[in-house]
């Protein structure tokens, strides 16, 4: 009897023909799925649907009821200057983080990918910020940034400022200062992504380059960077998705200040929620959702394209 003829239980080819067994076969996948589906429906899908409904109501959290108001909440946020400020700040934040996230981890990956002693140790050291709880990272940096802290002192001593300055409390630098925390925390994470890419580059390319007399730096620019471009698009999209949702490092350092200079979209939603304006928060949440979904779809397209490239 050859392998192919062995009957395999599946819903298409029932092993036993009696009705009870067939009924059980239809049920089997659902027995596996039900526990997770119940949880996801209750705590994820129902709240998501509710958020959509609330965005069209003037929902009151205390009374737990609301009247239908159409697109009134959206009109309100679109005429709210602070909302546009928050949207602009979010975009600015992403623009600060994006170039650094693309290039710094690429350099880190190339460095730790070398065949040198201690490369493994450096990999661990570079990854350390990733495993730090975000709250801890935010507080550590807040300490470094503080006026009498070491970073302010350092920037003053190298002559960047004429007196020790806390970058987090200047409205011109606060958003940038917060973005640096995000970059610091993500370096190792994106480095790993590039490392996966580096593993796919054939060693022959480097050998050929070195025979032709190319220096290490030249190989990096002419081979490593171009070969990592597909990965850098993935890094970019992930940076955008995560950047849209930036919250902890802002709430715990500047709390959206000074004077709204670091109020991002999520800070805006959070503040509306704290004021119990949950319908406004939901409407702003839907704007966030649309942006996040657009970025995610882009990511999926890129990922599946990459998979196709690998297969083809």
């Amino acid at each position: 009897m050859s392998r192919e003829q062995i009957p395999i239980p599946s819903t298409n080819v029932p092993l036993k023909k009696n009705r009870k067994a067939k009924g059980f076969q239809i049920l089997t996948p659902w027995l596996f799925l039900i526990p997770a589906l119940i949880i996801i429906t209750l705590f994820l899908i129902i709240p998501i649907v509710e958020a959509f409904i609330w965005s069209l109501q003037d929902y009151k959290l205390i009374a737990q009821s609301g009247e239908f108001v159409g697109l009134e909440n959206f009109k309100k946020i679109f005429t709210d200057e602070l909302f546009w400020r928050a949207l602009l700040n979010t975009i600015l934040f992403v623009l600060f983080v994006l170039p650094l996230n693309i290039f710094l981890p690429m350099i880190l990956a190339a460095l730790v990918n070398q065949k040198i002693r201690a490369a493994g140790m450096f990999r661990v050291l570079y990854y350390l910020p990733v495993v730090t709880p975000m709250v801890v990272a935010a507080l550590m940096w807040r300490m470094l940034y503080s006026e009498s802290g070491f970073l302010a002192k350092f920037l003053y001593e190298i002559g960047l400022f004429d007196r020790p300055t806390n970058l987090l409390v200047q409205s011109s630098t606060a958003l940038f200062a917060v973005a640096m925390i995000t970059v610091w925390k993500g370096l190792g994470y994106y480095m790993m992504m590039y490392l996966a890419g580096l593993q796919n580059i054939s060693k022959d390319l480097y050998e050929a380059a070195s025979i032709d007399g190319a220096s290490k730096l030249q190989s990096f620019w002419k081979i490593t960077v171009p070969m990592l471009i597909p990965y850098s698009t993935l890094v970019s999209v992930l940076t955008i998705i995560n950047g849209l949702k930036v919250f902890e490092e802002i709430q715990l350092t500047t709390n959206g200040g000074p004077a709204g200079a670091t109020t991002t979209l999520v800070m805006y939603i959070f503040n509306k929620f704290m004021d119990l304006d949950v319908s406004i928060a939901s409407a702003a949440g839907i704007v966030l959702l649309i942006l996040a979904v657009a970025a995610s779809l882009l990511q999926m397209k890129l990922t599946s394209k990459r998979e196709e490239d690998l297969r083809g």
Binding site: S10, T11, N12, I26, T28, P29, W30, L33, L37, I40, L44, I45, I46, P47, I48, E50, A51, W54, L61, L244, K245, F247, V266, I269, F270, F273, V278, A281, S282, G285, I286, L288, L289, A292, V293, S296, L297
Partner: peptide, 27 residues
Amino acid sequence: MDFRGREVVLTLIIATMMVPFQLYMAP
């Protein structure tokens, strides 16, 4: 497994991955 509703469940699961927590935290 091959069963009716598989694609629906799979799509639903992938779709919820994209939804930011801040949207549904109030509900």
